[in-house]
Amino acid sequence: MNIGDELNLELIRDNIDILKKLYDVIRIVDPVTKKVLMYDEGKLIEKGRSCFSKIGNEQICKNCISLRALKDNKTYMKLENSDDKSYLITVMPMELEDKTLIVELIKEVTDTLFYGHSFDGKGCTVNNIIQDMKQLTIKDSLTEIANRRFIDERLPIDMNICYKSKQPISIIMVDVDHFKNVNDQFGHVAGDEVLREFAYSLKSCIRNKRDWIGRYGGEEFLVCVPGAAAEAALVIAERMKTNIEKKNFVLNGENIKITASFGICTTSDKEITVEQFLKCADQKLYDAKNAGRNRIIL
């Protein structure tokens, strides 16, 4: 016997038909058996025993508001963000024939849900607010490039993509030479300005949107070059080194020269871990600094 046989479907239709005009997806969930009915064109179609969604995979959410609605006997709402789209999900318990079901209402609100009362621009859409919040979590506030959190999340993904496509991947570890002297002589505010301009100089040398650069920590930066073998990574590092050598950094009205050391590591071995990959590049950077700085070590 399926869930449709156990309940009065006409009664359900009478209760939810008007909601179809307001939401993109309507489904009825029996939270005990996990059976699901999808409401579509006036029909209720059974969709098996596992919760599923228009967004994400067929799995129970970590924050399952349907189970919470059942437990507390309350209506709950939440915003979900997936693939650069925003969804408003409303769940409410419904008593039918001595059985408690959960009605789940899903509406895409990427461009239609606003925060506050101003409609004079796209900036007030909730989706843009969510995107801005995401940027805050992955962007270094000083240099405005990616931060360490982004590096930790993105590098394993790019390594896996390159392995699957049988492409190499290179990373370049970069460190500002004698940066402590800059801070000691000109102050930390001037040192911050050096880091900002230094990051911009590095960023201007990467190839395309696939390449990226992040602040690894302090005056150390990581450049990721997916699909690039050692020779291609070396070309990019040499371009960065030359760009920095030619640049005049103006600190307290005085022109100073900055140099940098580079360590490059390349792999196409799917067995290498992220930690080993980073350690390899860090060791090459250490070798460059020990060899006199302002140089590149492969």
Results as ranks from 00 to 15, higher is better:
residue 206 I to K: 03
residue 47 K to P: 02
residue 53 S to T: 09
residue 170 S to M: 11
residue 99 K to D: 05
residue 107 K to L: 02
residue 2 N to M: 10
residue 169 I to T: 07
residue 147 N to A: 07
residue 286 Y to C: 03
residue 120 D to F: 13
residue 18 I to S: 13
residue 61 C to G: 10
residue 238 E to I: 01
residue 73 N to S: 10
residue 256 I to A: 10
residue 197 E to D: 00
residue 69 A to P: 05
residue 272 I to F: 00
residue 229 A to D: 06
residue 12 I to H: 11
residue 297 I to R: 12
residue 240 M to R: 04
residue 256 I to S: 05
residue 201 S to V: 01
residue 18 I to Y: 08
residue 45 I to H: 10
residue 297 I to C: 11
residue 90 T to N: 02
residue 123 G to D: 06
residue 89 I to E: 04
residue 283 Q to G: 00
residue 23 Y to H: 13
residue 116 G to K: 15
residue 298 L to F: 03
residue 57 N to A: 01
residue 70 L to M: 06
residue 199 A to E: 12
residue 50 S to N: 15
residue 105 L to D: 01
residue 57 N to E: 08
residue 141 S to G: 00
residue 97 E to P: 01
residue 111 D to F: 14
residue 19 L to T: 00
residue 54 K to L: 12
residue 296 I to F: 02
residue 239 R to F: 01
residue 49 R to A: 14
residue 121 G to S: 14
residue 114 F to D: 06
residue 144 E to D: 07
residue 255 N to T: 03
residue 48 G to A: 08
residue 158 D to N: 12
residue 30 D to T: 01
residue 100 T to C: 01
residue 13 R to W: 08
residue 258 I to L: 11
residue 124 C to I: 13
residue 297 I to D: 08
residue 152 D to Q: 13
residue 37 L to A: 11
residue 8 N to D: 11
residue 144 E to P: 02
residue 72 D to W: 04
residue 223 V to P: 00
residue 158 D to P: 05
residue 104 E to K: 12
residue 64 C to G: 00
residue 245 E to A: 15
residue 249 F to K: 01
residue 46 E to Q: 05
residue 199 A to Q: 14
residue 272 I to A: 03
residue 191 G to N: 04
residue 21 K to C: 10
residue 267 T to H: 11
residue 216 Y to L: 12
residue 55 I to N: 00
residue 267 T to M: 13
residue 57 N to C: 11
residue 275 E to V: 14
residue 49 R to W: 14
residue 181 N to L: 13
residue 291 A to Y: 06
residue 7 L to Q: 14
residue 160 N to R: 14
residue 129 I to L: 13
residue 115 Y to K: 07
residue 251 L to G: 03
residue 244 I to K: 13
residue 176 V to Y: 12
residue 150 F to D: 03
residue 26 I to W: 06
residue 12 I to N: 11
residue 247 K to E: 08
residue 182 V to G: 09
residue 171 I to E: 02
residue 197 E to G: 02
residue 189 V to R: 15
